[in-house]
Amino acid sequence: MKQTHQFLHKPIEDKTIVWFENTNEYLILENTTADILKRLSKGLSVKEIATALAKKLSVPLDKTIDFVLDLEKRLYTPKTKKEVDIVNDYRDVKIPDSFEFTKYYKVNNVVFKISYSSETELSYVHPKFAHLTIKKPVKFDHFFDVFIENKYIFFYVNKEFIGAWSPKEIHYFQGKFSMELIQKIHNKEEDKWMGVFHASAVSNGKKSILFLGDSGNGKSTSLALLQANTFSCLADDFVPIDVKKQEIYSFPAAISIKKSSLDTLLPIYPELKTTAEYNFTRLNKVVRYLKPNNNNFFNHLPCNDLIFIKYQQDAELQCTKIASVDAFQQLVPDSWLSPLKDNAAVFLDWFSTLQCYQLTYSNNEEMIATVSKIFDDDL
């Protein structure tokens, strides 16, 4: 029985973006290469495809056969999953009878009880959500348990085991924690989300814009400046987008402010002077957290624009449209994208409609004015 190759393809500009179901990978390919994949998926033999390619490119047949075989092998061989080496099987691990810390967080009308077995687990989660803390309520809607056993961090939601992670995988735990949180806030299971972006999302009340860029480029600082100038923080660092409407959904985490941004932001947010400081040695950064000005964490808005933003001292403001394929290559590696075929198809269609910009600035007022023009489709 001939192997079936499951993939999606989307022409964008002069390239083709291809998604592979067996690995949940996206690649940007030359159109000729993408055409070979289409032929393979239709059941054409390697020799048929290679013969046509040799004729088209005027190269020896043995070369094109090797090329097609290599392409098929590299692109269709399933990735092997690395087994998680937990010292004891998680089924033998029991939720502790008592926890050192219990916090209650309220997101609009949804109340969470989060229990942490020690200060270590507390530090992984609480700082971003401390602004949501309330006194012990009469009742709560969901309870999360976080504890360390045999050096692994375990995570349960409403007594259901979610996962366990080694000390080197704390960021995966934090991502899963956030995913469970948005599922409960917005009443959407994981298969209803198209993806989650490592970005910042700002809103004008009618739509949103995504800020992207490497750590230290100024995403969160720009977001803080904008929320002090009539805009709203929709999400910071963890930006979810749904499948049904392809809209950015609010996420209630605080805005992460690096120490290097304090001089800029203290005149606007004097509360940062006395806000607790957190030293994340693993990430080599020291941050404080700023409460977002969002007052509706159920909010969700369309997004038409991506901005790769960069603060650069003494730079003249430059804002130019960039190629979609270039934006795609920067967006995807730091994102969680749904492994479901239908959701992947929606993501490709949604991405193809976006306007993508590169914005470099040093003057805050000029940056704010430029973002306003993009919101108004006036750039």
Rank of each mutant, 00 (worst) to 15 (best):
H5L: 14
H9P: 00
K10L: 10
P11E: 11
K15I: 07
I17E: 04
F20M: 05
N22V: 10
Y26D: 00
L29V: 01
N31E: 15
T33P: 07
K38V: 09
R39S: 09
G43R: 00
E48G: 01
K55N: 14
S58Q: 13
D70G: 14
L75K: 05
T77R: 03
T77G: 05
T77Y: 00
K79R: 12
F99L: 00
Y105A: 03
K113A: 02
K113G: 03
I114M: 08
H126T: 09
F129S: 02
K136I: 06
P137M: 02
F140T: 05
I148L: 10
I148M: 10
Y156L: 06
V157C: 09
A164K: 09
K168R: 13
H171D: 11
Y172E: 15
W193A: 04
H198Q: 02
S200E: 03
S203K: 04
S203M: 03
G218N: 04
L226P: 01
A228P: 01
A228G: 06
N229V: 07
S232G: 12
C233T: 12
C233R: 04
L234N: 07
V239C: 09
K244E: 15
F251E: 04
I255R: 03
S256G: 09
K259W: 05
D263Q: 07
I268G: 02
E271D: 13
K273T: 14
N279V: 13
V286T: 14
V287E: 11
R288M: 10
R288T: 09
P292A: 08
F298D: 15
N299G: 13
L301A: 08
N304L: 12
Q312V: 12
Q313A: 14
D314M: 10
L317R: 08
Q318E: 15
C319L: 08
A323H: 15
W336S: 08
L337W: 03
N343V: 07
A344V: 05
F347P: 02
S352Y: 06
S362G: 04
E366K: 09
T370A: 06
D376S: 13
D377Y: 09
D377L: 08
